[in-house]
């Protein structure tokens, strides 16, 4: 569910001084900068263009796609927020992903700790089982997953479909693979001696885990949390099947943000509101942009936290 994050050898400090800088000729340097600026424009311009489009009228988008808006159409944002219900979708999304991320982190680090630190029968099987989960195309599972949810209700009486708790549980299950993989790598980098010392002092395995190992793995947890945030915020296929508006009255919505955006994009085929769509795109991108800029260092380092030698 989270973006694929391969492990990397060591915890790296970015302030390492340049290697070999002196051997660069001026010409190469100019060439390098041209290339970098070129790529930066390719990355930034489509996004800036979308943001500008979010402030134009539909007619301006069609007739003068290159110009800046004559009057800034801030009401596009209001329309996207209220009429297109982007606000409600964002609320639903947080309702799901806050508990989902918390439990993903807790359960994954428990499993990862065991897999990283203990030898037992079946360990290899369990590791492989979690590992290949990252390779499954999710939508292959969609209809059977729907049936599983339905049977749970039949056997236990607990409704799972079209419920927030049902979606939370599924998000957790589909985030385990990657998060366990990531946290196992992390636990392996922590020195064994600390845990051993605590055990000698009479602490139980659980006490060691919660009082010693978990606090030590905070950097790893933060990284895993950020990646799960991005993955679950953008999750689309699972809620499409498990959260439907076919059971709620008009005016309410169970959709999460990606579904809502898709719904809005679909509506363009019937009632075009491109400026509203771009405003919605901007509203939805903003949280990820903020998370990224605030935690930029942590996200990049997060990639390097896991251990290669595991």
């Amino acid at each position: 569910m989270a973006p694929p994050t391969p492990p990397i050898s060591s915890y790296v400090n970015y302030s390492i001084p340049a290697k070999n800088g002196a051997s660069w000729s001026a010409l190469l340097k100019v060439f390098a900068y041209v290339l970098l600026v070129f790529w930066a424009v390719i990355v930034v311009y489509p996004m800036v263009w979308s943001l500008i489009a979010a402030l134009k009228t539909d007619a301006e988008i069609f007739r003068t796609p290159w110009s800046i808006p004559a009057i800034l159409q801030f009401e596009n944002f209001g329309r996207a927020w209220k009429k297109a219900q982007i606000g409600a979708y964002i609320g639903n999304t947080f309702l799901v992903i806050v508990p989902a991320i918390s439990f993903t982190l807790l359960l994954s680090s428990m499993a990862a700790y065991v897999l990283a630190r203990f030898e037992f029968t079946g360990k290899r099987l369990l590791s492989t089982m979690f590992l290949i989960g990252m390779m499954f195309p999710v939508f292959l599972a969609l209809v059977p997953l729907y049936l599983v949810m339905r049977y749970i209700k039949e056997f236990t009486g607990i409704p799972m479909l079209n419920t927030f708790h049902g979606l939370i549980v599924v998000y957790i299950a589909y985030s385990l693979s990657w998060t366990i993989f990531f946290m196992t790598g992390f636990f392996k980098t922590l020195p064994k001696e600390i845990a051993e010392a605590a055990m000698i002092d009479g602490a139980s395995h659980s006490q060691v885990f919660f009082r010693v190992m978990l606090p030590l793995s905070k950097p790893g947890l933060v990284s895993a949390g950020i990646f799960n945030f991005l993955g679950q915020w953008n999750q689309f296929i699972l809620p499409t099947v498990l959260m439907s508006n076919a059971n709620v009255e008009a005016g309410q919505t169970r959709y999460v943000v990606s579904q809502g955006l898709y719904y809005f994009q679909n509506q363009q085929m019937y009632q075009s509101d491109f400026s509203g769509l771009f405003a919605a795109v901007a509203i939805v991108t903003l949280p990820t942009l903020i998370v990224y800029l605030v935690f930029q260092d942590r996200i990049e380092k997060g990639l390097t936290v896991g251990a290669l030698k595991g």
Binding site: L107, F130, G133, A141, P144, L145, V169, I172, A173
Partner: peptide, 12 residues
């Protein structure tokens, strides 16, 4: 959790 919500659907 993984078994019920991930593996079972794929086997299904």
């Amino acid at each position: 959790l993984y078994f019920v919500f991930v593996l079972v659907p794929y086997l299904g």
